[in-house]
């Protein structure tokens, strides 16, 4: 029972972080129709920026996060303006490959600057364990869950209540109609990339806080694919459910079955979902069939 609770908490923590990484992915896809393979690289950039700000500049962590968010926004919007905009109208394979190229470039730049050795981030989330129902649970994971929930809530509120959020939903729904209503699609695209980069940065920081700052943060980003397919590629709420399910699934598999099976289980789930319900749990049923 104790193991079960610990696995559940770890799973929920990983799942919450995954959801955070995936929500940006879903926002980009929903608004602009681009599959962003550089989401993992964005996470890594965020983690390294916070690390630099704390370790090299000696800043306090709220300032460090703000600095990283600024960099993330510039990165996201710059990507949209200079890399994705020339690709409008190109085939799916080209769009996918350009984001893959970007991912390689970003990861290599980080490697260039910081080397391949994993760096340890000064923990800005308190460590230690708390006893809940007599089960020792790692505090930093509980806080990670809370932080992720907070950010996801904010993203949700943004889409529901703010003017820009509603405009973004309009663009996702029908670009032409949105244009005729006077919404600047370019601005919405830039905003989608900016928000996605910031959420990815936060996810990267949370991952780095648990497992250290290294290129592996970007590997964590590959898991967004099972998450978004499970939740539905264009569903914000779906990514949260998908993230939690995938996070739990990984932890339970690691804890009860082991043998490295946890590395592949999300992808088996992915294939299964694609076979039976390609639009995911909450996605819009609009998949093209041939």
């Amino acid at each position: 029972m104790q193991t079960f609770i610990q696995l559940t908490v770890s799973g929920l923590a990983n799942g919450a972080i995954l959801a955070l990484a995936a929500v940006g992915f879903a926002i980009i896809f929903k608004a602009t129709g681009v599959i962003n393979f550089a989401q993992g690289a964005f996470m890594a950039v965020g983690a390294y920026m916070v690390y630099t700000a704390i370790a090299d500049f000696g800043w306090a962590w709220p300032l460090a996060i703000a600095f990283a968010a600024l960099i993330a926004i510039l990165l996201g919007m710059g990507t949209e303006r200079f890399i994705l905009r020339p690709m409008v109208g190109e085939s799916a394979i080209s769009v996918i490959m350009v984001t893959i190229g970007l991912a390689f470039f970003l990861e290599a730049s980080l490697q260039f600057q910081f080397g391949t050795r994993p760096l340890r981030m000064a923990p800005f989330i308190p460590e230690g364990t708390v006893l809940i129902l007599d089960v020792p649970l790692p505090l930093n994971r509980l806080i990670a869950i809370g932080l992720a929930a907070l950010v996801l809530g904010a993203v949700g509120a943004f889409f529901r209540y703010s003017r820009n959020g509603i405009a973004m939903r309009a663009v996702a729904d029908d670009q032409q109609a949105a244009l005729t209503m006077g919404i600047s699609v370019r601005r919405i695209f830039a905003m989608a990339w900016g928000i996605a980069a910031v959420t990815a940065m936060l996810a990267g920081v949370l991952v780095a806080n648990i497992q250290g700052v290294s290129g592996n943060v970007a590997l964590f980003g590959l898991l967004v694919f099972p998450v978004v397919i499970l939740g539905g590629l264009d569903s914000i709420g779906g990514t949260i459910v998908g993230g939690l399910i995938v996070g739990l699934l990984i932890q339970y598999t690691a804890g009860y079955l082991g043998g490295g099976l946890q590395q592949v289980v999300p992808y088996i789930l992915l294939v299964f979902i694609l076979m039976v319900r390609p639009y995911g749990l909450f996605g819009e049923v609009r998949i093209e069939r041939v």
């Binding site: 599959i35 799916a92 394979i93 996918i96 694919f225 099972p226 397919i229 590629l233 490295g260 590395q263 592949v264 992808y267 088996i268 992915l270 294939v271 694609l274 076979m275 390609p278 998949i287 093209e288 069939r289 041939v290």
Partner: peptide, 24 residues
């Protein structure tokens, strides 16, 4: 075979999964 039902992005992700499964 999945390609019969999946197009574009979905097929890319399906083949990505097959990559991980085969390596595993």
């Amino acid at each position: 075979l999945p390609a019969l039902r999946l197009k574009g992005l979905y097929l890319a992700i399906a083949t990505l999964a097959s990559q991980f499964i085969i390596i595993y």
